[in-house]
Design a protein around this nucleic acid. Structure first.
Lengths: 144, 144
DNA sequence: CCGTATCCTGGTGGATACTG
DNA sequence: CAGTATCCACCAGGATACGG
């Protein structure tokens, strides 16, 4: 395992985390990654995105798009026709994000079964330990 | 319908996203990645983690740890001494997460300046467009 | 030391109605 | 079409107190 990166002893610990955190906040939110992945295929217009995602509110689409634009990941171009024609696309920076995100996606895809199995084992163990009746004070089990 | 690669040029549709989303919810939360990265260096005991993170509440530490354990990323071992000695460490699965997360970390580190520059440009443009007086209805600008 | 139970607040995000 | 403005429900998560 090459250790070129973050987890190296002391140096990058705090520094590395402080750099990753804001990025995580962005890609960790409900819609950003999804939008980036959709725009990775091709540029989309506003309502095109809204239809494709379906489940997102206008508000959140606008907000997320603004955030991505602010971070320089997405480009917003307006053709001053009437009605206005607004097209969203990935910037170079945005495209460079695809690779690490896909790496994560591949990891998720590769291990999803493993994770689900672990979850079921865990939940089963809980039930075994706690044959408790309804209403009994549980053990912080808001996990399930 | 097994799509081996997540995002071939045109690929990555809903199926891929549904696999990534739960993972994103985990690594996207406030503490999970941080904990995983700390445990990547060495196993820690509960209060050791609490001290190292400092800013986290017991509640969230417990909750996050439980979540990671449930997903099979973290192993919790209790030595039945008194007082109890509980040690948390990464499982194999947990260790395999380090690589893609570090990839993201490297991306963040490499582009953080670029992002901050974009943000400042964006904010400056907003201020230029809106020399508005205080109290004026702004344009969804809860971004800054 | 390692948690759990309870209370409470602030922010996230959905629904809805309105505009250019 | 492409947003904005406003209201509101929900719950993540901090503070605190207690228990094995």
């Amino acid at each position: 395992m090459h250790d070129t990166g973050l987890a190296e002893a002391s140096g990058l610990k705090a520094a590395g985390c402080r750099n990753v955190t804001p990025v995580l906040n962005r890609i960790g939110d409900k819609w950003s990654v999804l939008i980036v992945m959709i725009l990775a295929r091709r540029a989309h217009r506003f309502n095109e995105l809204k239809r494709e995602i379906d489940g997102i509110s206008q508000r959140m689409l606008t907000l997320t798009l603004r955030g991505l634009e602010r971070d320089g990941l997405v480009d917003r171009s307006v053709e001053p026709t009437v009605p206005p024609r607004v097209t969203y696309s990935l910037t170079e920076l945005g495209q460079s994000l695809i690779e690490p995100v896909e790496a994560l996606g591949r990891w998720a895809f590769a291990h999803i079964d493993c994770i689900r199995a672990a979850q079921q084992r865990f939940d089963a163990a809980i039930d075994a330990d706690v044959p408790a009746q309804a209403g009994a004070p549980g053990a912080l089990r808001a996990i399930a």
